[in-house]
Amino acid sequence: MATQTESRKHRVEEFVVQSEPFYVPITDEVEIFEAAYRQKVPVLLKGPTGTGKTRFVEYMAWKLGQPLTVAKPEAKRAADAPNGSIPLVTVACHEDMTASDLVGRYLLDAQGTRWIDGPLTKAVKVGGICYLDEVVEARKDTTVIIHPLTDHRRILTIDKLGEVVEAADAFLLVVSYNPGYQNALKDLKHSTRQRFVALEFDFPDQEREARIIAHESGVDDESAAMLAKLGEKIRNLREHGLEEAASTRVLIYAGRLIEEGVAPRRACQVSVTWGITDDPQIQRSLDEVVSSIFP
C-alpha cells in the first residue's frame, strides 16, 4: 500500500480518484450497481462492518468515471464540480444529523446572509452519487427528504429557499446500513427500505479475502492466507458468543502490523482478538485459534 508522506489539499472539484480503487467483486454486485445507476434506482448496501461497502462505492464511482468528493456535513465548502464530471459525496451519518445538514442552510456573513447547499443538494444538482453511510444513525426527519428523492419524483424540496430541485440524470442515492446490530430501536422503516434495491455484503471467501489482505496490507501471501483463515475461523463463532465477527478491515490492520515487524500472534491479538470482544474467556479461545494458525 502506498503511503502518503504529507497531506495534500484539494479543492473539491479538482479531487478525483487518481487510480482504480482495489476492489474484488464477490458476485455480480458491480453489474447490478451499474444497471441500477443507469436506471436511476437507489441502492441500499447491507452488511456487517468492514465488508467493503464504502470501498465498493468508491470503486463504482471510479468505474463509472466519476471523480470523488468526500464531504463531511460540517465541511460544506464544496464548490460546483468541474465540467461534466460528477462527484461522489459521502456523508457519514450520525445521530445529531438533521435534514438541514443534508439539504443546506443559510449562513451569516458580514454583509448579510448566504445560502449554502448541503452535500445532498449538491449531489442532486450536479448529478452524482450521494452515499449516506450508516443511514439508520441519522435522525428520522432525514427520511422526509429521502423519500421524494428515491421514488419516481426524484425531487428535493428546499423549504428555506422555497425551491424544489429536480435531480440531475446522473444523480443516485446510495445508503448503507448494518443490520447486525442487536438494537431494536435502530432499524430502517419498511417504507424507506423498499425504495432501494439492496445489495448484501458479507465477508469474502478465504482465497479472495487473502488477496484483499495481501493487497491492502502488503504482507506476503502466506501471512495473508493465514489471516484470511483466522477471519474465517472467527466467523465460525458468530452466534456462539461473538456479537460481531472479525471484519476484513481488522485483518488488514493485523497484516499491516505484521508488515511493520510486529510478531504475528501479537498483531492478531491487538487488532483482532481485543478488538472484537471484551470477554476474557472468548479472548482466550480466540488466542488459541490465533496461536494454532500462526507459528
Partner: peptide
C-alpha cells in the same frame, strides 16, 4: 472446556 469448545467450533465451523 469453555475455551476448547469455542476453539473447536471456530476450527470446524
Amino acid at each position: 472446556s469453555d475455551i476448547l469448545r469455542m476453539y473447536c467450533r471456530a476450527l470446524a465451523a
